[in-house]
Amino acid sequence: MKDIQSLESWSVVKNGGPIAIAGPCSAESEEQLMETCRQIKDSIDITMLRAGIWKPRTRPGSFEGIGEEGLKWFANVKKELNMPITTEVANAQHVELALKYGVDVLWIGARSTVNPFTIQEIADALKGVKDVPVMIKNPINPDVALWRGAIERIYGAGIRQIAGIHRGFSSFEKTKYRNIPMWKLAIALKTEIPNLPLICDPSHIGGTRDLILPVSQKAIDLDFDGLMIETHRDPDNAWSDASQQVTPARLAEILNEVKIKKSSTDAEEVNTKLDTLRSKIDRLDNELVDVLGQRMEVVNEIGDYKRDNNLTVFQAGRWIDIFQNRPEQAAKLGLSKNFMEQLFKLVHDESIRLQTAVVNTEKA
């Protein structure tokens, strides 16, 4: 997928990144949609307008979107404000209708990404379509392979203007977020597909207005290519996701407050300093690998000894000692206790695996 195009090559992107996409969670009425979008355009310069036309809801009886009538309204918004528009599609019919009414960019929601059959139906509807970008949200559950699979299916339809949208992941764990960011999964996807543009949806990650700014800043700090922020002229009375939408005025404040950072620089002095520091990191990483290698050699020796003396591989007391003492020791050096707990759990799991292999091998 090396020929996935950068955002800068998309015809709807006039300026360089990061891009900004904003608009109401749902198109509720023609007047609400037009007025919200007009206020957004008057408040700040953004890349494109968004609105939900079809809304997949968890339970029946909730507002599930206006449907085709909303596309007519959105087409009028596009014409009057001279702005590109984007909406979510969840099946082949949605694709056909969205294209019929001149939607510039399509996006696929998290509930669709989780289902390969749905993605393939959308991909089949896109075959032969040219110059229509498609943005794909991560699946509800934390599964990078499923996210990548959806991207590959859309790519297989001939679409080359593709972007991922990171909207966080559902979890039974109670946190301050509506959907836990799990930034490492978005980074993992970017590592697998380095040229894939990534956009963050802080509205769905945060779930509340007060979290949109910090989540947006975190995304920009991680070199995301843009933001999608739900914006409504009267958020408190929105028909869907009221708590995570902001006013056009607040949208402008957020985008102005986010500190844009560069992923690279031409300044020779800065690059020289970074190269020096990175060389130190490389050397220390090599030392870490060497130390881990030495540790695992000792682990194998312990495995031999346990086998010869008929001892169990796992010994709870020893694990408790490691799990408690190592992170506490690291904390005294200013290291994150949580990080060290995770690190030593990984090291211990690998030690158990190696020792189990040794114990189950007959002595020569």
Rank of each mutant, 00 (worst) to 15 (best):
E69G: 07
K79N: 12
S351K: 04
Q93C: 04
L311N: 06
Q39T: 07
E28S: 06
E121P: 02
H232M: 04
K174C: 11
N256W: 02
L251C: 03
L99N: 04
R167T: 00
T208Q: 09
V13Q: 03
E31Q: 14
S336E: 08
N82V: 10
N195D: 09
K79L: 11
L335N: 10
A186L: 07
T118E: 07
A90F: 11
K174E: 15
F169G: 08
L343S: 12
G67K: 08
E328A: 08
R59I: 14
L255M: 10
D285L: 11
K280E: 05
D282I: 01
K2Y: 10
L213I: 04
Q120I: 04
R160P: 00
E96Q: 15
N309G: 07
I193V: 12
N15S: 13
T58V: 10
K130C: 00
N309C: 06
R167N: 02
V114H: 08
A163F: 01
F323C: 08
P181Y: 04
A92Y: 00
P18D: 03
G128W: 01
N237H: 15
W183Q: 07
N195F: 04
S279E: 14
K259H: 11
D321M: 13
F63W: 08
G23H: 03
V298A: 12
V13P: 03
I165M: 08
S43E: 01
G23R: 03
M48T: 05
K306E: 06
N179H: 10
K55P: 03
K41F: 01
K55H: 02
Q355W: 02
A316K: 10
